[in-house]
């Protein structure tokens, strides 16, 4: 199993009251899956994705990623996991402004394992070509459309050859045509064997996934 979550709770304390964002979630995702996580807002799906992405730690429960227990790790260990095993795609792209596409894609390789400059550049060009932006290596985000920016972000997520791509509403800021392009591209990546976990609230986007998990009130419903 790539991801194995057991009896996971996440509790937030907001002033006096406590909010159970995750209420005993258990789920398993295998290598090579394409999973869509669905749920209305406040259902806990974002919290779940944050924990899956090692950006947040659960209050209790266990999280095995690639066979390794992640739940009790410190910030540095989590940073290393994020760098080596996870690739993020965000709703608002989160590219560095005024920085070229190629430098944005190279960014993850500067942290973690040492890579030679030539190797890094070669891989970044290869990835940008793969997402169809081979001719726009030196364009800055401001010079790219939303769909193109998201493709740069996907190339960046692939840079360190992650075990899984985590996409948080990757089509949320895109028009229908670009949305379909992006989700189909994620699908094609999945066909190459890359595991993709995607949070969305749009049914037609979720339909491209091979499996759909519905989260409601901090529990996996389906």
């Amino acid at each position: 199993m790539l991801i194995e979550i057991k009896e996971m709770y996440k509790t937030y304390h907001v002033g006096e009251s406590t909010v159970n964002a995750l209420n005993g979630v258990s789920l398993q995702i295998d290598y090579g899956e394409f999973v869509a996580i669905m749920g209305h807002s406040g259902s806990g799906k974002s919290t779940l994705l944050n924990i899956l992405g090692c950006l947040d730690t659960p209050s209790s429960g266990s999280y095995l990623l690639d066979g390794k227990e992640v739940a009790g790790m410190n910030r540095n260990e989590l940073a290393a996991i994020r760098n080596e095993k996870l690739g993020f795609v965000f709703q608002n792209f989160n590219l560095l402004p005024r920085t070229s596409a190629i430098e944005n894609v190279e960014l993850p390789s500067f942290y973690g394992k040492k890579v030679s400059n030539a190797e890094r550049r070669e891989r970044a060009i290869e990835l940008l070509t793969k997402v169809g932006l081979g001719g726009r290596l030196w364009h800055t985000p401001a010079q790219l459309s939303g769909g193109q920016q998201q493709r740069v972000a996907i190339a960046r997520a692939l840079m360190n050859r992650p075990s899984v791509i985590l996409a948080d509403e990757p089509t949320g800021n895109l028009d229908t045509k670009a949305s379909i392009e992006i989700v189909e591209f994620l699908r094609s990546l999945n066909d190459e064997g890359i595991t993709v976990v995607m949070v969305t609230h749009e049914d037609d986007i979720a339909a491209h996934a091979k499996r759909t998990i519905v989260v409601c009130d901090g529990k996996v419903v389906q």
Binding site: G53, L107, R156
Partner: peptide
């Protein structure tokens, strides 16, 4: 930018 760098693997010390 800090959030992004952390998400792609920057440690606090970085």
């Amino acid at each position: 930018e800090i959030g992004l760098r952390m998400a792609i693997g920057a440690r606090p010390v970085d």
